[in-house]
Design a protein around this nucleic acid. Structure first.
Lengths: 119, 119
DNA sequence: CATTTCACTTGCAATATGCAAGTAATCGTT
DNA sequence: AACGATTACTTGCATATTGCAAGTGAAATG
């Protein structure tokens, strides 16, 4: 279900940066193939981990965002980023320092920003 | 690196049950193909997540166990199991209840049993 | 109203996975 | 000591998944 190369990366992006469009997701993971991204988004929607809402300001666009089940992955993703930060060369040291300084607070922040958007 | 269907399941097994042999790993995940298991073990060793030590009592056998980098995945795996327990039908409810009751203690227990074996 | 942009889809080649049948070393039994 | 069973793989081949490049149609932009 999450056992493929891309799903968790997609979820991580939406989790960290908020609602993303197809194009934003394509460009952020330099090498994901367009058909695979389309397929993964379809599957993640079917699993109710993400959802797609039309952007009112531009009817071509869809905003992909996390469901409740999706943000509940925040602790998993946070631990993964921390592990990678400790054991692999990784960019985004600032993010990792922030996570390490206050892990629970970091996760709570993600949840709060998500809840605020659900209004 | 962990972005495939089997690696995290293999690591989870070794984490929860301690050193495992090839045969035990083959049988525990009902459907992993033998060539794929061999390949994943090779890769996980190359990444220094697991290691293989010969069993003194039976020279045919190798015991696969976690390295330091490997047990550092304990929080990731624990959060994953908790997430799956909350959102998917899953067996092993007893394990999940234990993890939920005292997550930090659960992880500490894994680390302690691992450290004891490293003697 | 022609050109871009966006969110995909399609076709095909490359890669990864799964299955079944080996193989070599060691073990357990006679 | 000899023989069959076990263990940890490897090999060959079919099938499934992924990646790449070139579309497509609808909506925005100039």
């Amino acid at each position: 279900m999450l056992g493929d190369r891309w799903s968790l990366l997609i979820i991580r992006d939406v989790m960290l940066f908020g609602p993303r469009t197809y194009k934003q997701l394509l460009e952020s993971h330099e090498r994901i193939a367009t058909n695979i991204l389309a397929d993964r988004l379809k599957r993640l929607i079917a699993y109710e981990i993400i959802r797609a809402d039309p952007e009112p300001a531009d009817k071509r666009k869809l905003n992909y965002s996390l469901t409740k089940k999706g943000i509940d992955l925040a602790p998993v993703l946070t631990e993964m980023v921390l592990w990678a930060g400790a054991h692999e060369k990784t960019e985004n040291q600032a993010l990792i320092r922030q996570m390490r300084r206050d892990k629970e607070g970091f996760i709570a922040g993600i949840r709060e920003r998500w809840a605020a958007r659900q209004s």
